[in-house]
Write a protein that binds this DNA or RNA. Sequence first.
DNA 1: AAACCAAAAATGTGATCACAAACCTTAACC
DNA 2: GGTTAAGGTTTGTGATCACATTTTTGGTTT
Lengths: 238, 238
Amino acid sequence: MDKKSPIEITLTERDDAVTITQWVYQTLRYAVMNGQILPGRALTIRELARILDVSPMPVREALRQLAAENALEIQGNRRVMVPRMTAMKFNELCEARIAIESHAAARALPYIDATRLNQLRELDHLIDVAQEQGDLEQVSILNQNFHRALYTANPHQVTLPLIESLWLQLGPFMRLATSKLEEHYLIDRHNEAMSAIEKQDAFALQLAITADIREGIAFAGTPELLHSFIEQSTHAVN
Amino acid sequence: MDKKSPIEITLTERDDAVTITQWVYQTLRYAVMNGQILPGRALTIRELARILDVSPMPVREALRQLAAENALEIQGNRRVMVPRMTAMKFNELCEARIAIESHAAARALPYIDATRLNQLRELDHLIDVAQEQGDLEQVSILNQNFHRALYTANPHQVTLPLIESLWLQLGPFMRLATSKLEEHYLIDRHNEAMSAIEKQDAFALQLAITADIREGIAFAGTPELLHSFIEQSTHAVN
DNA sequence: AAACCAAAAATGTGATCACAAACCTTAACC
DNA sequence: GGTTAAGGTTTGTGATCACATTTTTGGTTT
């Protein structure tokens, strides 16, 4: 069992309110999003079932669902793995995020009321706190919550599932970004976003969101880091 | 069995090369996309399994996959159905299509070579032929193929799955559109798109794609038709 | 020593079964 | 008559099993 690198998945408490399949889905989703599973590493139903201590059935369903969201890739061999990344694909994912999320932000703008604005302010504040404490994982989670809170202001929202799919695909590789980003001084684009919201200025909001996304992946400007990780991903367990 | 309206699904030949699950998935997907299943109608695994003459297992997996693509909706009761439509949601889906597809088109533009251009020309011609023959279903299919051929020119394409998800969600309600659109004279936006491609003019291409999408759903300009169908969808089998 | 091939182990797919929760029907009751 | 409560039925979930295909292994040949 050397070639098959061990998989370490953070297990959360299983709530009886959710089905086993849902719990497995959430667990695997978190593992994928945080790069706990090496891209290219073959995932087998029975192995995951052993790790998670459930029967193969819920794992089957969860894997299929994650594959449908492009978080996992099913090869012709019917083998499942986290997709490998390339520099070009990474770039396309980022540009897609910008296109869709700035659209979603503009569409949500008219629906943002005082309550929502306060919620955004609070999240922004929590992000600052987490940033000062250097808790990058928390920053990442809160940042997602901020974006989600913004887009879901639109009660007829239809793009969030698409956006989450992009987050899932970028997730494993963003971890690398944030870990190197520690030294990088971050301008708070969320403040810009919120002043744009107060002014109901859609264009300014789109600019702020675009800048926020671009800076979150600023390390893409240092291609050698991205390249090194992508190489790692490419040469991983075949 | 009056409340439970019968489901009529077009069955295609089952190819032994694909798994039963895949076949069921394709069959159900086609049925959803073409509005063969009434929005709100509760879908049960065993019923579909009887109709498709397969065991419940492949149906289970196919339903979960379609739900992950937002083609179906899983309610809290764990019941599965085609999501109901609202006028606002319809509008959001259309605007999302425009945002994402014009982005995808611009991103694909630099990769379009002579071969791809010829392929697009041929599809455009086939659409004209089908249009003259009044075969609206064929027009719809070919139109999708045209868009797909355009976006997939980009070898690092990541947005097509998202776009197809939007198509799936709009599908059941587009049928109504095209059926009323027969009388409507359609300007051929594909020609505009292709001349923009030849000039490598990204902005013009985006305008052409936007116009093409907007006209494909032109009936949204006649709100009463949309509204009537949405009402039908809303008041369908509870 | 590297390449090839057959046997053995492991894997995904699909079927069937058990069970608890949800749904529908029926009957009693206000 | 409309509402509620309890019964039986149907449904989704999850477990287990069988089988064909794939992957790995171990031995053989060039």
